[in-house]
Structures are given as C-alpha cells and as structure tokens.
Design a protein around this nucleic acid. Structure first.
Lengths: 229, 229
DNA sequence: ATTGAATGTGCGCAGTGTCAACATGGGGAT
DNA sequence: ATCCCCATGTTGACACTGCGCACATTCAAT
C-alpha cells in the first residue's frame, strides 16, 4: 500500500480516491506543460495517479473531455498571467494613458504566457472548438453586433483573458482616446495580433531567434496594433 | 523507359509502385484536408495507396516525416492561393498604391487559404518546427539583423508566401510609402496579423460567426496592421 | 443491516507507429 | 543476354493507446 501519493488534496484514502477528476486533470496538465496536447494521454494520467485507466472514464466521457479540462486550467492560468502583468507595472496618472497601459499590458501578458507555457498554450488552441470553453456559447448575439458597437461576450467567466482586453478598450472609448466607431471588432483584432505573435514566435522557425529579437518583435507588433486601432 | 509518368494517381504496374512517396503524400494530403493533422495516419495512407503499411518506411523515416511532406505541399498551396489573390485584383496606376494593394492582397490570400483549406492550414502549423520547412534554416543571419534593416530570408523557396509580403514591403519603402526605420520586423508583424486572424476565426468560438462578420473582422484586422505600420 | 448508485478493477478489442526478417524484380556490370 | 545487387514491398510481431463490458468495492440513504 505504499503509494507514491502521500498527502495534499489527493489522499487516496482507500479504494476510492476522493478527488480523482482533479488528480487526473492535474496529471494531464503536467504532461501537457511538458509535451503539448499530444502528451495528454489518458492511460498515462491514470497511471501517474495510481489508478486504473478505466477509472478515468467515470469522470471523463472520453479522451477529448480530459483535454478540455486541461484547456480550462490553461485558460485560467493565461488569465492569471495577464492579470499579473496588469498589476505589475505602475499605473499612469492620466486615465487615458492608464487604459492604454492596461491594454498593452494585457497583450504583453498574453504573449508572455505563451512563451512561459508553450505546452499549455498549444493545448488551449488545439483542434476545433467542439465542446470547449472560450468566448462562450452565445454566438447568436455576436452575429448581430449589439448596440454598443462591439462584440458582446464575457459569457460565463471562462474567457477572462478576452474581457481584460475588451474592458481596456471600453475605457479608451469612454475617455475619448479611441473613436467609438472604431471600437467594433477592436477586441478581436487586438487579440488576434497578440495571438499571431505568440504562435509565430513559438511554432515557426522564428522560434530559434534570440529572445531579445523576439521581444523587439512583440513590442513592435503590439505597437502596430495599438497604432492601427 | 518510355512510360513511367502516365498516372498521376498511381501506376502500380507490378510489384514496384514507381512513385510511392508521392502517392503516399498525396493520400496523406487528402486526409489532412478533411481532418487536419490528426487525420494523417501512416497506415491509412498506405492502405489507400494499396500498399502495405511498412512500405511507407522505405520513403519516410517515420510518421513525422510524412506530416512534414504534407506541410510542404500545404505551404506550396498557400503560396499559390496568395499569388492568385495578387493576380486577381486589377493593378493600381500609382506604384505606391499598387505596392499597398499587393501587400493587402497577400494578407487576404493568406486568410482566404486558411478558410478554404482549414485542414491543411492547421497541418502546416502543427507541433514544433523540428524538421520542418518554412522560413528556412539560417536563423543565425536573422539574429543579427542585416544592413537593410529587416529580416533577411527567402531561404530556399519554401517560404514563398512569406517573401510575397516581404517584397511588397520593400517596394513600399523604395517608393517612400513606408519610413525605412519602420521596415524592420514589418514582415513578421504583418504575417502575424493575418495568421492571428486566421487561427482565431478558425479554431475559436469565433468560427461560428457568420461569414460576413468574419470578412469584416479580417478587413478591419488587415487595415489596422497596415495603418499601424 | 440492506441495498442501490458511485466509483474503481481486469480483460479484451480495434487500431496505430515501428522494427526485423524475408520476398521480389529492375537495372547496371559482366 | 546473364547475373547478381539492393532498392523497394511484404508478412508478422511488439508496445501502446482509446474505449467498452462485466465484475468488485464502497458510501450513503433507507
């Protein structure tokens, strides 16, 4: 009975684990961190948790659901990283500058997470969106563009990272730093800018560039986006 | 010696196939088109080609090499789509406007390909870059930034799509439409802009948006990038 | 204590990547 | 034309994966 797991939240105090779903997810997250989405293998996670493979099927309908669970965790960590970046810099006195600082910080945090956790980042954006979190389900609303002139959203709470940028943009408009007519789609465009930077500098030959150059590119990319808006 | 090309699909006149590598790649491309990188399964490709699974190992060291072959094909198709888009619109009389039109067309072609061939697009950017084509191998040169002030490249001929945008930018500089000091990294930024748009509108809940909205977002995204440069 | 629903276990099936040993036959040296 | 080499294909097997089925164990409500 000398199992490797000793304490913490996953006690395994007998036949029943008590928190298997969580334990499995954590194990899967660990693999994903190291090897990306491909490294998420159900049997492995079960093995690492000290439980039979089929036990996992009591908590996940199939392999994909495990992946989705990992995506969720990753998304939360993404948001956390962005929030950290937000809180990191010192606020500007001018409200307009401050809003802009926040937008830039949000974008920077996004890229920073991608670099810090490439495995998780790749896992988050992997395969279609069938059964995923992100931006939420009510796309119907998105379709018709709402009265405020931008994509509504912040569905549940999953897409906090998205709303961070979105809110900063709202402030910019409120403070007159961004013409209201340009508000529409600005969030998506900003998001796509930082996402593109992340992916290219991570999964392309560009990944071999020295870090300083990458940092320059990221700065430039974000500046271009902010300028262009 | 006379007949050996006849069939593009597969000759199979006897024990030896004659063009297995190509046939396998084609089969794999077909699966990838329909189901993305995950759909590239070596045994399946062999089966579809009417050959034993292990025969593939005479032409590909392992599964990954097959995927790389598909990536190559996809890259070529990407470039083709972009070139089509370039040739599609009518040229502007003013050279500066023309260069700008080309840059925009290149970007639009990029996104258009992503929408037209999502499976291949996802395959191209899948997993690390170990043993891939793209941007080429000489990153050392990239590191030090060259005299012209932008990332050199056009390695072999694989990254034609990249060079299409890069050349348009060069023209813009030559014609005084873009300050030379902003030329640096502009290609990467432009590329990342269109890439981000493609990925987000393809692999996110945003994918459920109606096509018109997507088109609007793409337009806006590209405009922002061009403006920001 | 009984019992039913959760939860976990073993076993098996189909399918995949990959390797080793063997078969075939096309093309160059003779 | 002949012969032999070796690139190209084939069969068989191993390890591993996702997943379903029948059975075991436990917790909780009766």
């Amino acid at each position: 009975m000398a199992s490797e797991q000793a304490a913490g939240t996953s006690g395994r105090r007998g036949y029943h684990h008590g928190d298997l779903r969580n334990a499995l997810t954590e194990a899967a997250v660990e693999r994903a961190r190291a090897g990306g989405p491909q490294a998420i293998v159900l049997r492995e996670a079960a093995r690492a948790t000290g439980v039979s493979s089929t036990a996992a099927y009591r908590h996940f309908a199939n392999h994909h659901e495990l992946v989705v669970a990992v995506k969720d965790r990753g998304l939360a960590m993404l948001a956390a990283t962005m929030r950290d970046e937000l809180a990191g810099g010192e606020p500007c006195s001018d409200p307009g500058d401050e809003a802009l600082r926040r937008l830039r910080a949000a974008g920077l945090g996004y890229v920073r997470f991608a670099f810090a956790e490439p495995g998780l980042f790749r896992t988050i954006f992997h395969g279609g969106t069938e059964g995923d979190p992100m931006i939420g389900r009510r796309q119907a609303a998105l379709a018709a563009g709402d009265g405020e002139g931008h994509l509504p959203g912040t569905p549940d709470e999953s897409e906090e990272s998205y709303s961070l940028m979105s809110r900063a943009l709202d402030e910019l408009v409120a403070l007159g730093r961004l013409p209201a007519e340009r508000r529409k789609y600005s969030d998506v465009v900003m998001w796509s800018a930082v996402h593109g930077l992340s992916v290219l500098l991570l999964d392309t030959e560009l990944a071999h560039l020295p870090d300083e150059i990458k940092a320059d590119i990221v700065r430039r990319g974000i500046d271009v986006a902010l300028n262009g808006l």
